[in-house]
Design a protein around this nucleic acid. Structure first.
Lengths: 217, 217
DNA sequence: TCAAAAGTGTTGTTTATACACCCATGT
DNA sequence: ACATGGGTGTATAAACAACACTTTTGA
């Protein structure tokens, strides 16, 4: 609790989002060490020598999920998340968007990662809930004027799947006709020509993102 | 030039903007120490013990300009601005908006602060030009959907002055009628009832910002 | 009376919203 | 034949962009 001398540590935290079963989910790990032992927290760690901030965030992402080349963006730098920490730390936070089908959660070790619905988070260590809330706001905003959703979906998908991803993130239902009109008019997706049959109904057209790099509209 | 061990330093840099004579200007200081001795750079310094990031940014702002209680927002954290630095540093950057009439630039000392047109910057130390460019983009975006301009103008001002501030920041001319319609419809400013006579033409109505706190529209 | 900046409306275009039915398929 | 999700169009309102003249004043 007492303030300690020495330069502050630089920690990197990553809010890893995915969409599954109509929920926007975030990856948390269970802390094995004090303080906040056994509490849930965002994956992260201390910046290592010779490593850029982006590299540190990318490394944490790969360690926890095995995925790389996904959307990853710096979120904010918090200087005051360390209420109960033994030493002053600066937290440079990032958020990432991953397709849950590509994720292989790290097994074993002291920490057990798991997905949580962002609307039903457990109590989090180090005020990490502030970071998650801010990340959700930023993601909701970015969804409106960028193609970031490419990082949540597989190569091919139906427009209904895309709409469900948007609805999960925004936390509200969207009108099907307006959604399709808007998405198609921006040209962020293109039809692949293939279709998918599943169940007793008309097959769905499949689409792909025109670009799998971040693009602002 | 060689990488040195030890935890990275945390530096705080502040991009201080003002609008004057139709130009968007940024405050730079001339470095007195190596590396980049005699080059221009953004005001900043190392985070001090017991100081939050926001406090450090606010302190730098007061040191250089004497102003407080202005718009100040965290911009981005750069981990790679230290090409020629003797020791690894993380730069947490902020931007601030000040009314130049309230500024009293710090005199004497080793560094001499001065205002520069953001479109005609001298070569800057530590790739600080990247920080300025990013700050300009962010400011241009914020101008569209917030009232941040309150921090650039005096208590009372004419709509023409407000429009000129917008034009200086955006780098393009705006239509007078559309500008006034838009600004007045948002309710961010209110007429004070007073007018200002200056020169051989019709006096201008004076306005004030409804709120001098940041507000999103 | 002239020069200078203040002030003011209309029209067309684009963008966003609300809303309901037919289509193709599997069982 | 029926249940299921896929797919489509139109009408209204709101936001934005283009554009020119009159007003009030000081000299």
């Amino acid at each position: 609790m007492t303030e300690q001398a020495g330069p502050p540590l630089v920690a990197v935290l990553v809010v890893i989002f995915t969409v599954e079963a109509g929920e926007l989910r975030v990856l948390l790990i269970r802390r094995a060490a004090e303080p906040y032992r056994d509490w849930w927290a965002l994956p992260g760690g201390v910046l290592q020598a010779g490593e850029s901030l982006d590299e540190a965030a990318s490394r944490k992402l790969v360690e926890e999920t095995g995925v790389r080349d996904v959307y990853l963006e710096q979120l904010y730098t918090f200087g005051d998340l360390d209420g109960a920490a033994p030493r002053r730390a600066i937290a440079v936070t990032y958020f990432a968007l991953v397709n849950h089908e590509r994720v292989r959660l790290r097994q074993g070790g002291d920490w057990q990662p798991a997905w949580f619905d962002v609307r039903r988070l457990p109590p989090l260590a180090f005020e990490n809930d502030r970071v998650v809330r801010y990340a959700v706001e930023r993601l909701q905003a970015k969804l409106q004027y960028t193609n970031v959703a490419y990082s949540l979906l597989p190569e091919e998908f139906t427009l209904t799947e895309l709409q469900q991803a948007y609805e999960s993130i925004l936390g509200r239902r969207l009108d099907k006709r307006n959604f399709r009109k808007r998405i198609l008019s921006t040209g962020v997706v293109r039809p692949t020509g293939r279709t998918r049959r599943e169940g007793a109904h008309r097959p769905a057209q499949l689409y792909a993102f025109s670009s799998r790099e971040p693009v602002a509209l």
